[in-house]
Amino acid sequence: MKEQFQISPSLAQMIVDAAKEVIGKDINFIHLDGKVIASTDPGRIGSFHAAALQVRKTERVIEVLENEIFKGTRKGINYPVMINQKLLGVIGISGDPEECRSLGFLLTKITEVLIKEQMIKTAVQSLDELRSSIVRMLIFENEKEDTFMNEHLQPLQYELEERAFVAVIHLQGLNNASSLFVNMKGMLIEQGIQLFTYLFPSQYVLIMNESQYKAALQILHTRFCSMDVSCSVGIGSVGVIAELTKSYAHAKLALKYALSKKETVCEYEKLDLEMIMENIDSHIRNDYTVKLIGNLAEGEINLLHTYYRHNLSLKRTAEELFIHKNTLQYRLEKIAEKTGVNPRDYHDSVKLYIALLLQTL
């Protein structure tokens, strides 16, 4: 275990995202110099957090009872992240300290577990820990240790090609994550997938060689997404081993699109307009969406999604919605009245379609 282990921003972001899913409040991870390196509130990333310096000085929990008591801080509680009696950073919950206090133990334990998993490199206890350690190193760390990779891939009897890709499986409706983990592990290995890891609370990340791409598509479609739980898969771009961090980011974008469209598998390489929109400033995306479809009810939004999925076909849209075609036309007219753009006019229809896409990003 390296004495100078540093928490990377990507790892810190994974920690705060996972913690928020469990705790339900905004979480910040602060470097020992006081800089926020990850947050579930994107606006706080890169800002200065003076309370973290107090945590570093005392190695104790610091509560902030009012906003800006310490420079750059908000109400909440900040905890030292200690691994093997070494302070690695500070993690904080934003909110009323009275409400946050009971969540502190859970937050610190989630943080410690996720960090320790990243530090497993030389003292690998099992093949499961080994494959997880390799995957996490490849997708979360900027610097890959070739010596470690070559040495520890041998027990898995697996060889990484020069080019590979990442896939993310998202599972819903989980009742027993531990038993599912055992089942998933067996299914993945059975299909010749040796590099994978479980990401709390409901995802598996897979790394496969470029030569496995076509077979992987078929396997993910037919094998894993026919299980009892709902399943969506995002497949990232193919690239050299050093760029698997990018492939992982692309896989998450593809998964986000698959979830929004209720699709089984989405490939990053087949996204086009969505990739452009993902790079539009979030405030601009939100303003455009609110302006065009902010007044529409959920049922009207779903109607539009169905309408576009059937390529503006009134007949097929009405059939899927189990309504008469005249009823559909009436509802589309009502949407035109509310939005000021007509879904049945080509140019207006494009504007609405873009708003719907932006809403899913």
Rank of each mutant, 00 (worst) to 15 (best):
E141Q: 12
E141S: 11
Q125N: 13
I139Y: 03
S132I: 08
V113I: 11
S132Y: 10
E98I: 12
L138K: 00
L138W: 12
N142H: 15
T108S: 09
S132G: 14
I115Y: 01
C100M: 15
R136K: 13
E99R: 08
M137F: 01
L106C: 08
I110P: 03
I110W: 00
I115Q: 00
L103K: 08
L103V: 05
D128Q: 13
V124Q: 03
A123P: 04
R131N: 09
F105M: 07
F105Q: 08
S102H: 12
V113D: 10
K116F: 04
A123H: 13
E141P: 06
T111A: 03
M137E: 15
I134P: 01
Q125M: 13
F140A: 07
T122H: 12
L130G: 03
T111I: 03
T122S: 11
Q118E: 15
M137T: 12
L130R: 09
S126Y: 05
K144T: 11
R131Q: 13
F105E: 08
D96A: 07
G104E: 05
Q118I: 07
E112N: 08
V124W: 01
P97W: 00
E141H: 11
L106F: 01
K116T: 06
G95R: 02
P97S: 09
V113P: 04
R136D: 10
E99P: 04
S132E: 10
D96G: 05
R101I: 12
S102V: 11
E98T: 10
T111N: 01
D128E: 14
P97H: 02
K121F: 14
E99D: 14
R136S: 08
D96K: 04
Q118D: 13
K121V: 07
G104T: 03
K144Y: 15
N142G: 15
V124L: 15
K109P: 02
I139S: 04
E112H: 05
L138V: 04
E129I: 15
E117K: 10
N142L: 10
E143F: 14
